[in-house]
């Protein structure tokens, strides 16, 4: 057991403690965005954990996994933030943008209403 192995085992324990605390924050919330941030940190911790495992074994086979995890964390947290309830992002941009108005892009709510009316009409005709 060399000095390096001792250092790496301590590193693993520290990462485990950090992951546990982040998991606690993910469970407590309270909002979806808090969980998105915690998810980002959890991905960073798991990248560190994979790196420590590679350092212990001295194998470079898990390197592509690090790359995939980086991009996965980015896509995950951005999509949660983009479509989080209450932020009104998508709808506000569609209706506020004058170009969209000119092109005839309608806001989500209007589109949903017209879809509902169309299905109601179709049902009436079938009768």
């Amino acid at each position: 057991m060399t000095v390096l192995t001792v250092l790496l085992v301590i590193t693993g324990v520290l990462l485990g403690v950090a992951a546990l605390l982040v998991l606690l924050r993910m469970t407590l919330g309270p909002t979806m965005l808090d969980r998105a941030i915690a998810f980002d940190v959890l991905i960073a911790i798991s990248i560190c954990a994979i790196a420590v495992e590679a350092a212990i074994d001295r194998n470079a086979e898990t390197m592509p996994l690090l790359l995939v995890a980086t991009l996965l964390g980015f896509v995950g947290s951005v999509s949660i933030a983009r479509f989080s309830p209450g932020s009104d992002d998508v709808e506000a941009e569609e209706s506020d943008n004058p170009e969209n108005r000119a092109r005839g892009v309608r806001p989500q709510r209007e589109r949903e209403r017209s879809l509902r009316e169309r299905s109601l009409r179709a049902r009436r005709m079938n009768r």
Binding site: M63, G73, V78, G86, D89
Partner: peptide
Amino acid sequence: ILLLVAVFQMVTAPVASHMAGRAAYRA
């Protein structure tokens, strides 16, 4: 590959944080 990981993380982390902060403020 490790250099690529570092570069990707440094490029994407600010974008993700910006999106989260913006959504939180608007909500």
